[in-house]
Each structure stands twice: as C-alpha cells, then as structure tokens.
C-alpha cells in the first residue's frame, strides 16, 4: 500500500468521528460538577474565556476566582483553599500550569497533600499557532516526576467529562493533573463505558502489534488499527488515559500477547507515556517497542492537525511504522 493510499484511507475513516470543541466541553463539565459539588471553587489566571470558563463565570460568579496573569499565585491560592476543605480546580493553560507554577504544584499541593485539580488546557500541539511558548510537550514528564501527583490525559470530550468527575470523586487528599486540549478534536469514546483513573481501556483486540496511546493520539491509533486490520495485521489499541499511576497489568498483558508495541503520545518522547511504558517493561520482554512522539525538538508554529501530520503524530504514520518495524516471532 502506498503512503497516499494509507492517507486516503485514514481520511475516510477519520470522517466517521464527529469533531467536538474541547474547551467548550471543559466549561460544560465544570458547570455540571459545580452543580453537584457545593464545595467546588474554580480559579483562573486571565484565561476564563480561553479555557471555556466564561459560561461558568456567568452561572457561578462567586465561585470563579480570577487572579489576573499570576499563575504561581493562583496555584498557591488553590492550595490554601483546598486546605480549608474546598475542591479547588485550577483552570489554566498546560504550559503555565505545569511550568510557571510547578513549585507551587509540587510543594504546596503535592508535598502538602491537598486535593487540588490542576487542569492544563491547550496542551500538546492543540494551540499550535501559539508557538513554542504555548505548545506543551514536557508537562507529563514533569508532573509524573512529582510524588503524590496523579496524571491523566483524556482522549476526547467524553473522556474529559468522565475524568473530571472521577478526579473530583477520588478519595484521599492529593493533587491530580489533567492534561486537556483546546479546539475541535475527534470524539469517539462510549459514554456508557466505565472510566476509572489508573485503569487503561482496551478499545481493539489484536495479536500482532499493540498500540498504546493517550489524548488525541488514541483516535489516531484506532484509525491506524482499522487500516492495519484491512491488511491482515492485528493491532490492539489500549487507551492509557492515566499515565500515573500507570496500569502495569494492562501493559504486561499486552506485552505477553503481541509481537511488537508502539506507544503514541503528543508529548516529547522523553519522559511521557512512552517512558512510563518502558519503565514497566524494563527491557525484559524481548520484543520491539517503538515510541512515537515529539522527537525532542521545538516544533514549528502552525495549525494543530497540520503540525501533527508533519511530525508523524497521525494514523498514517502509525501504520507506516507498524508495517516497517520488526516483530517478535
């Protein structure tokens, strides 16, 4: 199959999934959560509109605290509110939630064990035109290295809603980082399928190759698996929405059942989901594992889907890699 044929097939399969705007869903899900949880307080740093929180601000003006462009202060204030029994939800861009305010996330939230939900929107390449300051491909690595921090990367609007609900309902006092997109993305999850933090979701069965992905790369893996199946290659797809704690059993059971593995994420290949999977395997399974991600570069400035395509973060690139890679006998 030529690469043009793969691309045409991938475009045809892609058309099957409706597009849903992530930040609008975020705003809706936050309103729904606030309706259930009287203790919820949302915080933003001059990004109320940009995070889809304007409708929330209209509905619950007294429960949206805008700190101005002061992300460090915001995260500290969130920790303080949480210590008073509030469910504090930080609504920021991933770049600033995970980088500018990282010590507040580590010390004030994680070390002190307060239950703050840290939301990082416009993550990955979802704000590609924002350039290197707004494209975020190091946040998972950073957050994952912080003890007591849970890291979840929802894959569409449906899973975003489920993840927010689960983050709020979680027992215990510890922060969680939700890595969230921005604009229109493919929606594919089954609203009825149960979601549990720390438990991967198997979306396709296959015995040749395992595709492990999260965030917007899950739908790419699904499309890739369908194309591979049409060519006699059985690809399983595992949605690893929780990077930390990673679902070890799911990874090990994939490893036992397939002849090769590709981990796909919209993140630097250093330190993200790929690294987390390799930490579980620890090289001891004698079969090839490949990582698809951002190859430790600053991507160019451009629109999301074109950027992903140019960087190989798309179904056709997964198919090509799967066909080319060696497989265990």
């Amino acid at each position: 199959m030529t690469s043009a044929e793969i691309q045409a097939r991938s475009a045809a399969l892609r058309a099957f999934y409706p597009m849903r705007v992530i930040r609008e869903q975020f705003g809706r899900s936050m309103i729904a959560l606030a309706e259930q949880r009287g203790d919820l307080v949302a915080l933003t740093a001059d990004l109320m509109y940009a995070t889809g929180m304007a409708p929330f601000g209209e509905r619950f003006p007294e429960r949206l605290i805008n700190l101005g462009i002061a992300e460090q202060n915001m995260t500290g204030v969130a920790a303080g509110l949480a210590s008073c029994g509030k469910l504090a939800v930080v609504c920021g861009y991933a770049a600033f939630t995970s980088l500018r305010a990282i010590e507040q996330a580590k010390v004030d939230c994680a070390y002190n064990e307060v239950k703050v939900i840290l939301c990082g929107l416009s993550a990955g390449l979802s704000y590609g035109v924002g350039g290197p300051t707004h494209q975020t491909f190091e946040d998972v690595a950073i957050m994952r290295a912080i003890p007591n921090m849970t890291v979840v990367v929802p894959s569409d609007t449906i899973e975003l809603d489920q993840a927010l609900q689960a983050a709020a309902a979680r027992p215990g006092d510890a922060p969680i980082y939700l890595r969230i997109g921005r604009g229109p993305e493919h929606a594919f999850n089954d609203t009825a399928a149960p979601f549990e933090i720390g438990r991967a979701r198997k979306l396709r069965e296959g015995r040749d190759i395992s595709l492990i992905a999260n965030g917007p790369m899950v739908v790419e893996a699904l499309i890739a698996a369908d194309i591979l199946a049409e060519h006699g290659i059985g690809a399983s797809v595992l949605n690893m929405h929780t990077v930390k704690p990673i679902d070890r059993e799911a990874v090990l059971s994939e490893a036992a059942n397939v002849r090769g593995m590709i981990v796909v994420e919209e993140h630097n290949i250093h330190g993200g989901l790929g690294s987390a999977v390799l930490e579980v395997l620890r090289g001891g399974h004698g079969f090839p594992v490949e990582l698809i991600g951002i190859e430790d570069i600053y991507p160019p400035i451009g629109p999301t889907f074109a950027l992903r395509e140019s960087l190989g973060l798309c179904a056709s690139a997964i198919v090509a890699r799967a066909m080319a890679m060696p497989r265990r006998n």
């Binding site: 500018r100 035109v129 350039g131 300051t133 707004h134 400035i301 451009g302």
Partner: peptide, 28 residues
C-alpha cells in the same frame, strides 16, 4: 503575516524575525 513559512509569526520570536530581540509569548 502568520502563515506557515513566514518570518512574522503571531507571537514575537527572536529566532524568526530580524529586529526581534527576545522570544515572547510567556508573559512576565
């Protein structure tokens, strides 16, 4: 302005534009 191969991206970047001394976009 603002197109893919332009020297004039939406956010000011020293690496793209003559006369742009620093790469901005992250305020402060």
């Amino acid at each position: 302005y603002g197109s893919d191969d332009s020297r004039l991206p939406m956010s000011g970047m020293a690496s793209y534009t003559p006369g742009m001394e620093i790469s901005g976009g992250s305020l402060g």
